[in-house]
Design a protein around this nucleic acid. Structure first.
Ligand SMILES: Nc1ccn([C@H]2C[C@H](O)[C@@H](COP(=O)(O)OP(=O)(O)OP(=O)(O)O)O2)c(=O)n1
Ligand SMILES: [Mg+2]
Ligand SMILES: [Mg+2]
Length: 1094
DNA sequence: ATCCTCCCCTAC
DNA sequence: TAAGGTAGGGGAGGAT
């Protein structure tokens, strides 16, 4: 489908990715896998492996990955799909991610039918989901009725179209036809493979599938994930940019006639943020709710739960928070009783805010403030699309973007404004308009219209009528289109007789009748009101706002004509006008213009196309686009404050001269960084507004709140802010936590869940190709005084937080290592499993996972150290990894022979010398890899000189080890300490011969009472090790004590007389030997004798 | 001084 | 019923 903004976007994205595919394929020396040739997937919701991983897999194996679902999407990948989503999806090819994974494993495209998420029979049944409807509340039932009406309407529309005898939609298309009321199935749901019923739903964290179901439904998880995704996206765009900014060109073009030149201010920062984001998106296909108080939430009003929980004490938690922060915001009359919903409101409309409702509030509270509050469900896919639209649109003007979240960013506008000599307000108006109309509906409509027009062109002139009335095969949006068109007529108050063409008039009238039957008046009134309100608000804004007349090719004379018409300059042949025009009188323009173009459109094919574009964008502008607000200032604080003031759907430039006085009245709580706690503390000082805050000296504030916080407060209340925008973003941590549904009855359950969480963190690390050296476990523990039953169903209640971390010498990302660490840490924290209310795993000290890291160690260093270890290691290296390392080093065939130890024997023990690696190849390597090679090489040389060169035979280790060990008898403690980390990092499991060498060494030191060296080596081993988990405690000073107590009491009896350090050394040594014993019984004796000795 | 660990806080 | 995640800044207090 050509044309269409969205289509172009999608096409562009795909282009990018096909380029990626090509390039990557190149880099990988033609990984000529074409397993997924012809397959285009779209990943819906949470999957394992993640969408990102699947994208990579598709790229590697000749498939295509779609960011959004398009007509070209051949398969939808999902692990879990709520019924309401199912209904929106046309294809029956909803496939589990295992299909991809297994196909790769098998090396061929497996039959997807073996991997269908739902069996076709179940799918059909789910489409009629009667059982859910019958258990719905009254309100839901009403919605269900409305839903039915919609379905009937859609069908009616089809019938008309079918009468024309063209392109009757297939059965399949009908099933998936757009349905705008997911409210029918209001509750997000777990996958139900067999529709057996609710008991399959994962209720708490002990049940299988809980984690994925939770993440699927967690709004906070989604906004977080989308935030990081968009940060990555900006980075990606910045990397790809070729210096062209199509948006600037458009802006420049329309500025041609505008004489006003704006002197670029020193620096202009823009903050832009979507208005009540989730609500706006939700209202796109619920125009009837516009103008009403609306909230996005999981809750459906105050429904009495089926089974009441015992021991709930909501007052306890309410009082706790009230007391803690002296928070009187929830007066007693708003106190929730047992049946009030504690579902949180993610976002609420501005009408709802007038009643005092806020984002994050409980639905129960909100309903008390506004009983008529309308609730709508989440639409995470929708948010994602609009987010990308937002970022794409801004990126057409500049890439000096700091992504903040899915609906918000900072932009350094200095260069755009300078290059286009535009003022902030002009730029803001234009940009916001583009953002508003850039969203899917308009795009799809436009796409449809242009497609239709094109078709008509290809046919003949007078077939226009047919074109208009023909259902295009390629789009499933036609009936929406006609519905919207009809709505536009109604909304714009166009009298039917304004439409001159009788056929079209008849059609639209008929359509209108059939599709807006009994409630048509209601609907009309509703839309009228919105229309009038829109106009009113536009008029309010006149003075600093502009209305952008959106037409495509601005140089086109026809478009100029249209623009002239719309703004009421009725001279079609008049001089070209700027397309950014200040509109003073809009009241009647829209309906006249629309009527005019309807008629115009019927006269010629040419103008028909323009007409539709206009109608659609006008429709969007007034009715369906999500609006953004923007603030401008000379730093991020000012921009932020300006946005706040400008909301909703507005913009404001806080000029430098106005800043200082503007700030004075601002409540300190409104400053970024001042939340509940800091606000409370400031209130304690009698500080309420920035003016109050200004009275304090910087040093006073720093003494009170700390150096940084103090100086930030000092600056911010004066409108100053020296934090620069941060464009290049790099992650500092990766984590996963769940503080909902955690209800364990024993350690076993906790362990199982921790493992799942570790798996999750691991996959997130791998997704971004990172490893981390520090692993932190965080537990929420029911506070001593808190009741066992929480106020919120499955919530965490009042908790204490405890964390414990473990630093490794080697960065890890594999689930096993992480799981081992956190399980160990869990034991240290010794929290009763039934008091756990939340669990989190965080990985920090991140390092980029370059394929070469570690592998280089192995290939370049290993031959030096341990033949048998090398061999076993190589055995563990997967084919893919080998491929990666080989290609990443870009070794030629002959070199591979030397470097790759995957040879029948391990006799190539000579150290790797420079000559083994072609210097030219080395020079061609990326800088970081080259350095690693060089570094590794140096280490090799130095360690060669220090260590006895080891020659290994093919004999089994048990025979060899005695002689081997003796070779190491001269090792110094320093040598051992150098070797240990490398050894540990290169293998998953210790080789017996290596263990023997170390044990031997340690035994000798024990015999010599050389406790200091033992301590050094053991600590080194422990801190290097991700395998020898139980001894990690040593790197953590706090845990030394634990080791000391538990171990010495058990095994050393009265050795408490020993100096702590000594004890620890001994304990450590014992633990090491104990461990070694596990893999080699021979050493049990050594351990025991050591014990006896002390 | 500067680091590290264990928190707390904030924002979306 | 309900889906209270996640990344980053930063402070206190101790180790180096
Ligand atoms: N406690 C919160 C706050 C926000 N969000 C989600 C829903 C919001 O729509 C989105 C963006 O947050 P904003 O702070 O930008 O709030 P809105 O966009 O809803 O409103 P505003 O017009 O004030 O920006 O993040 C959420 O789920 N829970
Ligand atoms: Mg917002
Ligand atoms: Mg926001």
């Amino acid at each position: 489908m050509e044309g269409g903004y969205m289509a172009a976007k999608v096409a562009k994205l795909q282009e990018q990715f096909s380029e990626d595919t090509e390039r990557e394929g190149h880099e990988r020396e033609k990984s000529d896998s074409r397993i997924f040739c012809g397959v285009s997937i779209f990943v819906n919701g949470y999957t394992v492996p993640s969408a990102d991983m699947l994208k990579r897999i598709m790229m590697q194996h000749g498939g295509i990955y779609h960011h959004y679902q398009t007509e070209k999407t051949t398969h939808i990948i999902a692990s879990n799909l709520p019924n309401c989503k199912m209904k929106l999806i046309r294809t029956l090819k909803i496939v589990k991610p295992d299909w991809i994974v297994d196909s790769v494993k098998e090396g061929r495209l497996l039959d997807y039918r073996q991997y269908l998420l739902y069996t076709p029979r179940a799918q059909t049944r789910l489409d009629f989901g009667q059982s859910e409807v019958s258990t719905c509340s009254e309100k839901q039932r009403k919605e269900a009725v409305e839903q039915d009406n919609v379905s009937i309407r859609e069908e009616a529309g089809k019938n008309i179209l079918s009468e024309q005898g063209k392109d009757v939609p297939s059965e399949e298309e009908k099933i998936g036809e757009h349905v705008s009321c997911p409210e029918t199935f209001p509750m997000p749901q777990a996958a139900r493979e067999d529709g057996k019923g609710k008991h399959l739903t994962a209720r708490n964290a002990t049940e299988p599938g809980f984690l994925s179901e939770f993440y699927n439904n967690s709004r906070l998880h989604h906004i977080s994930t989308m935030g990081t995704l968009l940060k990555q996206y900006v980075t990606q765009l910045r990397g790809k940019n070729d210096g062209s900014f199509p948006g600037r060109l458009r802006l420049q073009k329309l500025k041609n006639d505008d004489r006003s030149q704006h002197i670029a201010a020193n620096r202009v920062i823009m903050h832009i943020d979507m208005d009540c984001f989730f609500v706006s998106v939700g209202l796109k296909d619920r125009p009837h709710l516009r103008g009403l108080p609306v909230a996005v939430t999981h809750g459906r009003g105050n429904v009495t739960p089926l089974h009441q929980r015992k021991g709930v004490n909501r007052a306890f938690e309410a009082n706790y928070y009230r007391q803690k922060l002296q928070d009187d915001s929830t007066p007693a009359e708003l106190e929730l009783n047992e049946t009030d919903s504690m579902s949180e409101i993610a976002s609420c409309s501005y009408e709802a805010r007038k009643c005092g409702i806020k984002n994050g509030m409980f639905l129960g509270n909100a309903l008390k403030l506004c009983p008529s509050l309308q609730t709508i469900p989440y639409d995470f896919e929708g948010y994602k699309q609009v987010s990308y639209c937002l970022y794409d649109t801004v990126a057409e003007f500049t890439l000096e973007i700091e992504a903040v979240s899915c609906d918000e960013m900072y932009v350094d506008c200095t260069s755009v404004l300078r290059d286009t000599s535009t003022s902030p307000m002009q730029f803001g108006a234009y940009l916001r308009q583009e953002i508003q109309i850039s969203q899917e509906k308009k795009c799809h409509l436009k796409q449809h219209v242009q497609g239709a027009a094109h078709k008509a062109k290809a046919q003949q002139k007078n077939q226009l009528q047919q074109t208009l009335l023909t259902q295009p095969t390629s789009s499933n949006l036609s009936s929406n289109f006609y519905a919207d068109l009809t709505r536009a007529f109604v909304a714009a108050n166009i009298p039917w007789n304004a439409i001159e063409n009788p056929v079209l008039r008849q059609f639209l009238q008929k359509y209108c009748k059939q599709n807006i039957p009994s409630e048509s008046t209601l609907r009309k009134n509703c839309l009228d009101r919105i229309y009038n309100e829109t106009l009113a608000s536009i008029r309010e804004d006149i003075g600093d706002s502009y209305i952008w007349v959106s037409v495509d090719e601005t140089s086109d004379p026809m478009n100029r004509y249209i623009a002239n018409m719309v703004v009421g300059k009725l001279s079609p042949d008049g001089p070209s006008i700027p397309h950014l025009v200040c509109v003073k009188e809009l009241s009647k323009v829209n309906s006249q213009a629309i009527a005019y173009f309807v008629n115009k459109g019927l006269q010629s094919l040419y103008s028909e196309q323009k007409l539709m574009v206009l109608v659609c964008s006008s429709l969007c502008k007034d009715k369906t686009g999500c609006t953004a607000s923007a603030g401008f200032g000379s730093n991020r604080l000012q921009a932020r404050m300006a946005t706040k003031k400008a909301k909703p759907n507005g913009q404001l430039y806080l000029e430098p001269s106005a800043v200082a006085s503007y700030m004075l009245d601002i409540p300190v709580q409104d400053l970024p960084g001042v939340g509940r706690t800091l606000g409370f503390r400031l209130r304690g000082l009698g500080v309420h507004t920035c003016l109050d805050l200004k009275q304090y000296s910087q040093s006073h504030l720093q003494k009170e709140f700390g150096a940084k916080t103090g100086s930030a407060l000092y600056q911010h209340c004066r409108g100053e802010d020296n934090r620069p925008l941060n464009f290049g973003h790099q992650r500092k941590s990766v984590s996963a936590e769940v503080n909902y549904g955690i209800r364990f009855t024993n350690q076993q359950e906790a362990t199982i869940f921790l493992r799942q969480l570790a798996e999750e963190v691991s996959s997130r690390l791998k997704e971004v190709k990172m490893r981390g050296r520090c692993i932190t476990l965080k537990l929420l523990v029911r506070a001593k005084e808190a009741p066992v039953e929480t106020a919120k169903y499955l919530g965490h209640g009042v908790c204490d937080q405890v964390t414990r971390s473990s630093s490794l010498a080697v960065a890890v990302s594999d689930a096993e290592s992480i799981a081992r660490e956190v399980l160990f840490l869990t034991r240290q924290l010794s929290v009763k499993p039934d008091d756990m209310r939340g669990i989190g795993i965080q990985v920090t000290h991140l390092e980029r996972e370059s394929a070469a890291t570690g592998m280089l160690d192995n290939f370049l260093l290993r031959p030096n150290l341990q033949g048998c270890a090398v061999k076993s290691h190589v055995k563990n290296v997967s084919q893919k990894e080998k491929h990666d390392i080989v290609t990443s080093m870009k070794t030629t065939e002959s070199e591979k022979g030397k470097v790759n130890p995957d040879q029948p024997s391990c006799s190539t023990e000579q150290p790797v010398h420079m000559g083994n690696i072609d210097r030219e190849v080395l020079a061609a390597l990326p800088k970081d890899i080259r350095q690693e090679v060089l570094q590794a090489y140096q280490i090799t040389e130095s360690s060669t000189s220090m260590l006895p060169v080891k020659v290994t035979s093919e004999n089994p280790p048990s025979v060899v080890e005695q002689e081997d060990v003796s070779l190491y008898s001269t090792m110094t403690v320093h040598e051992v300490r150098m070797l240990v980390p490398k050894w540990v990092s290169s293998e998953n499991l210790p080789q017996p011969c290596d263990v023997n060498i170390l044990a031997d060494y340690l035994e000798r030191q024990v015999a010599n009472h050389n406790l200091d060296d033992i301590s050094l080596v053991v600590r080194c081993l422990y801190s290097s090790s991700s395998s020898f988990t139980q001894v990690h405690s040593i790197s953590n000073p706090r845990l030394l004590e634990t080791v000391h107590c538990t171990r010495t009491q058990d095994f050393w009896g009265q050795s408490t007389a020993l100096e702590l350090k000594t004890s620890n050394c001994v304990a450590s040594a014992w633990m090491l030997l104990k461990f070694i014993h596990m893999s080699n019984p021979r050493l049990l004796d050594a351990a025991d004798s050591l014990a006896v000795q002390y």
